[in-house]
């Protein structure tokens, strides 16, 4: 497919804005439902983007989420300005968390975010610079059989 078939939309996520936390993922879910993406794929995308969005709200000053759709894949990139991650390998371990009590009271910060993203995205890439920010890229194939 050529690039003309791409749809790109960027959303802003504000750090510490718990009342809006998750709203971008809700919007993405609605966009994907409208264009008729299979529900199993929507689930994967929504769970991964929600976890990524919560990470920005909890740990960063602000972030941008970019959704790119083409006939074969859904790409979500999240780039934030924040504290970054010192040890990505450690952060990828289930249960490892640096969350505060306040974040845990929100129902998050149990050290499952990045593992949940990895589990749901077909391709997951993460890079981070401590003190600068974190970049995540997730790719989901619309044809799950091809992804397997």
């Amino acid at each position: 497919m050529n690039r003309h078939d791409e749809f790109i939309q960027t959303f802003t996520i504000l750090g510490r804005d718990f009342s809006r936390a998750g709203s971008v993922s809700t919007e993405i879910k609605e966009i994907l439902q409208e264009i008729g993406v299979p529900s199993s794929i929507i689930r994967r995308v929504a769970i991964a983007s929600y976890e990524a969005e919560m990470n920005v709200v909890m740990y960063a000053q602000k972030g941008e989420l970019t959704l790119t759709l083409n006939p074969e894949t859904i790409k979500i990139e999240v780039e934030d300005e924040g504290q970054g991650i010192e040890d990505i390998e450690l952060a990828m371990q289930e249960g490892y968390s640096t969350a505060t009590e306040e974040m845990r009271e929100m129902g998050f910060g149990a050290g499952m975010g990045l593992p949940n993203i990895k589990k749901n995205a077909h391709i997951f890439i993460i890079t981070s610079s401590p003190g600068v920010g974190t970049y995540l890229k997730m790719i989901f194939y619309l044809d799950e059989e091809r992804a397997a």
Binding site: T26, A46, Y50, E51
Partner: peptide, 29 residues
């Protein structure tokens, strides 16, 4: 909620003690 996102399946009845907006967002997702 991260646990719910990890084990939840479509159609589930969710029991929780968390009453904030995230509980409904998670249920929707």
């Amino acid at each position: 909620m991260s646990d719910v996102l990890a084990f939840g399946q479509p159609g589930i009845l969710l029991l929780t003690g968390l009453t904030n907006l995230q509980s409904v967002r998670t249920a929707d997702i």
